[in-house]
Design a protein around this nucleic acid. Sequence first.
DNA 1: GACACCTAAAGTGTATTCACTTTCAAGAAA
DNA 2: TTTCTTGAAAGTGAATACACTTTAGGTGTC
Lengths: 244, 244
Amino acid sequence: MNNDVTLVSDLGEHNLKEDDDSPSLVDEVYQKLLLRIIRCELPGGTELKSTQLARELSVSRTPVVQALARLQADGIVIQQKNHRAVVREGAENWLVEIHELRLLLEPSAAAMAAQRITEAELTELQMQAADVKTCQQQYEAGDRSSAHLQKWSTASRSFDYALHLAIADYCGNLPISEAIHKCWSYKRVSYSAAEETPEIMTRGLYDHTVLLDSLKNRDSETASVAMAMHLRNASRMRPDRLIV
Amino acid sequence: MNNDVTLVSDLGEHNLKEDDDSPSLVDEVYQKLLLRIIRCELPGGTELKSTQLARELSVSRTPVVQALARLQADGIVIQQKNHRAVVREGAENWLVEIHELRLLLEPSAAAMAAQRITEAELTELQMQAADVKTCQQQYEAGDRSSAHLQKWSTASRSFDYALHLAIADYCGNLPISEAIHKCWSYKRVSYSAAEETPEIMTRGLYDHTVLLDSLKNRDSETASVAMAMHLRNASRMRPDRLIV
DNA sequence: GACACCTAAAGTGTATTCACTTTCAAGAAA
DNA sequence: TTTCTTGAAAGTGAATACACTTTAGGTGTC
């Protein structure tokens, strides 16, 4: 059984806590199951038995049961009392559909955040944007090596993540913020399989710059439209439509 | 300690399963905690200790830990590894903010459902609407007794629930559907404290009729607007803004 | 008084255990 | 053959056990 690969790369809180290192077993199991479902290795209808999974993953049943409960709360898995958990039919398209959900949430969140985000946060984000730009120029001006591309890609993702989550955090509505965070946690799981091309990253940086400017100008209308445009671009530029 | 009131009234699946009766302890604990948080009996910052809660609720720690994990997944509670769970600051406005979230989700869901809902489901819903109308007329034509009002209120809620969840189910996007279901599960928890007035119910039935007609006509645009209007009305007619 | 250090009590994560429920395949009855 | 019965195997919900971590309240030192 070769599914005990360490999938738990960089989970955990995205804040400044440095003491809490190892993720709990529940987190690990949850991540592994989620990844396998999203990758269709566990298609809709598959039965997930806590006893069997515990054996396979070499943990006790307790964390597996908790991970399954979390998947059920997400709606990815269904479990009736005293019955086995079942992967929900249609869970294969989860990531694509999550992108549609983001299209409903994030433009409004951006509009709301434009009125509430702090100047400090804005300057922090602008610094990150500058970093990404630097990486891009190093790549283009240099030898276009894969090392430079890698660096650019990492910076690009990091900025992407920071900007979208800052918008969620400053939108002023907890459930909306939580919903967006959840979308991004799914997206994060898929990162292991995703690929960034220079075209996508260039376009992404442009979109993000427009978005950041509209936040800076406290222009909710533009922020909302910029976000909607950005999300549509992102899905348009990925013809496989599997990882968005 | 008088908090061991049975709060778990009519939880469980809203489908035709009749064999599975008693809700699990996890569900009960989750419901009780959620209700107490929404009612501000457990304000933001309160520490929720699994050991202590287990003692108070006379259950073992296992279901309490799972309920807390669920609240954490919801974003209502925060818990770092090896630390106590804490009620999130700002959780008091949860229901109001959930209503704002519905305003982002349900209009689009209605538009999507207009293209996908089945005729069978539509006729079923129309029958329920007729039932509500009958109850209303019985109340108005009769002695306006509280018994008739009660019956009307029950039918009204049942129809409300059925229509909105049908729209979620037929919107064709699993995460969006799940998000809407979750909003309604919160709303359901608050039902114990909510009050329906004849004015609200009359307006609600009208809104729902318009919505249902637009679904019947496969008119996405109208369905979306009707839903948005309905949601705005609902919050406008509740000046307390606590239970929506 | 303020601050570091220590220790017992409380709390958390996870494994183990057990009673009860569901599943499923083999044998009996039609 | 098909359908019903049945009992063992597998699975689930929940309590308990235990090692490890955090918390809180001294005690001593400055």
